[in-house]
Design a protein around this nucleic acid. Sequence first.
DNA 1: GCGACAG
DNA 2: ATCTTGTCGC
Length: 253
Amino acid sequence: MESLQREIADSAVFDDEFDFDPTAVQSPADSSQQQLTAPASDTDSDGSAPSDAPLAAGVDQAFLDERAISAVVVLQAGEVVERTHAVTELSIPYIPGLLAFREGDPIVAALETLDCEPDLLCFDGSGRIHYRQAGLATHLGVVFDTPSVGIAKNLLCGTPRESVDGRPAGWRTPIAADDAVDCADGTLIGHAYQSRQYESSGRHINPLYVSPGHRVAAETTVDFVAALCNGYKLPEPTRLADSYADEVKSKLL
DNA sequence: GCGACAG
DNA sequence: ATCTTGTCGC
């Protein structure tokens, strides 16, 4: 399996290689943060999404015994245009570094039921931030040869350039490859991104660890995630896929 | 041998 | 990931 991951990493493209307009990737009318650009009036007067805006799909799983519920929610300019899911039997246990082999088939099953063809796939888990630079997001991005990004809540490997504790919303810092990563030390493999943060004292929210999946550069990956976040810790596509998976799961009980 | 380790 | 009440804060 490890050798297959190295082959996947070789086939992966960690640079921008997509058709759509990167500045058109976004969630609805951004409520809070984001220090990005001017208020582009790309939205049609009737409030519907521009038919040419890129399709961003969020993919996430919920589990029930030895079954996986893989959910996919596709957004276009912040609006849901399609939702699908698949329930599959699991055969492989969770092993750090081999997550794609456990959740890969369920995800493929769910994506195959999709009517549209997403321009960008957002996965829960790492992409290039992986021992062999072939995390879940990279693995599936290559399989479908579709631009993809990895969004993880915890760091698998690599070293943040700065301490990540208690940072303000919008903050980001590079994640460099270290001894645990199969590439030159110091290589930029992703970023820690503070998508949300509490105003005053008390506890603080941990950052997101985002990395290129396939056909997207590290810097662009953070820009996409930042543009897809809308007040919550998780970007909209992922957040919706997450709750949809839970919804399907509860109806399954 | 010990520690580290996405979901 | 999942099992789960209350609790603190915006």
